[in-house]
Amino acid sequence: MIRGIRGAITVVEDSNEQVLKETARLLQELIHSNDIDPDAVASVIISTTTDITSAFPARAVRGLEGWNYVPVMCTHEMNVPGALEKCIRLLVHVNTDKSQQAIQHIYLNNAVQLRPDLIQK
């Protein structure tokens, strides 16, 4: 069955280095927490808030070993007043036998405020 695994992270500044580094950090945490094998991944959708324009976060995904053939698409989030700034969100579609409750969604930096109910204690 395909499950969606969510994650989000914020960057301190909109720079190529920060966007790529923090995207890779988020994905590596998702991989580690959910035992993700890139061959089991159907696709990855990455969104950024509209204040991130310095880099395509997909480059960070494709830079990880074994992930260069995984379909990845970047897009922008809706520009809602008062929304969290400088945020990168991932939605990883994974073939897994895990239940919805067993999936560990990951929220890092200021993104923890997006889904405090899902933060692992």
Results as ranks from 00 to 15, higher is better:
Gln101Thr: 15
Gln120Leu: 12
Asp117Glu: 15
Gly66Val: 08
Ala24Glu: 13
Leu27Phe: 10
Cys87Ser: 11
Ala42Met: 04
Asp14Leu: 06
Val80Asp: 10
Val70His: 00
Asp117Gln: 14
Arg115Thr: 08
Lys86Gly: 01
Ala40Val: 02
Thr48Val: 15
Ala60Pro: 00
Asp51Arg: 05
Asp35Ala: 14
Val61Thr: 05
Asn79Trp: 10
Ala24Phe: 01
Arg62Met: 12
Gln100His: 09
Ile46Leu: 10
Ile103Val: 15
Gly66Lys: 09
Lys121Arg: 14
Val19Tyr: 04
Ala102Pro: 10
Ser15Pro: 09
Asn68Gly: 02
Leu27Ala: 04
Cys74Phe: 09
Ile46Ser: 00
Met1Cys: 06
Ile9Asp: 03
Leu114Asp: 11
Leu20Arg: 01
Ala111Asp: 04
Ile106Trp: 02
Asp37Ile: 03
Glu17Phe: 12
Val70Gln: 00
Ala55His: 07
Val41Asp: 03
Val19Ser: 00
Leu26His: 00
Ile36Ser: 00
Gly82Gln: 11
Leu108Pro: 11
Gln120Lys: 14
Glu65Cys: 02
Ile119Phe: 01
Val70Phe: 04
Trp67Arg: 05
Trp67Ser: 08
Lys21Pro: 06
Gln101Cys: 08
Asp51Thr: 12
His76Gln: 15
Val92Glu: 03
Pro116Met: 06
Pro116Asn: 02
Val61Ile: 15
His93Trp: 07
Lys98Val: 04
Leu30Phe: 03
Ile2Met: 03
Ser54His: 08
Asp97Glu: 14
Ala111Phe: 06
Cys74Asn: 13
Cys74Glu: 11
Asn16Trp: 04
Val61Gln: 01
Met1Arg: 00
Trp67Leu: 06
Ala102Ile: 07
Pro116Val: 10
Ala83Pro: 11
Leu90Cys: 04
Ala40Phe: 00
Glu77Arg: 12
Tyr107Phe: 15
Gln28Tyr: 04
Leu26Lys: 02
Asn79Ala: 10
Ala83Trp: 09
Val11Trp: 08
Val41Thr: 01
Thr49Met: 02
Leu114Asn: 05
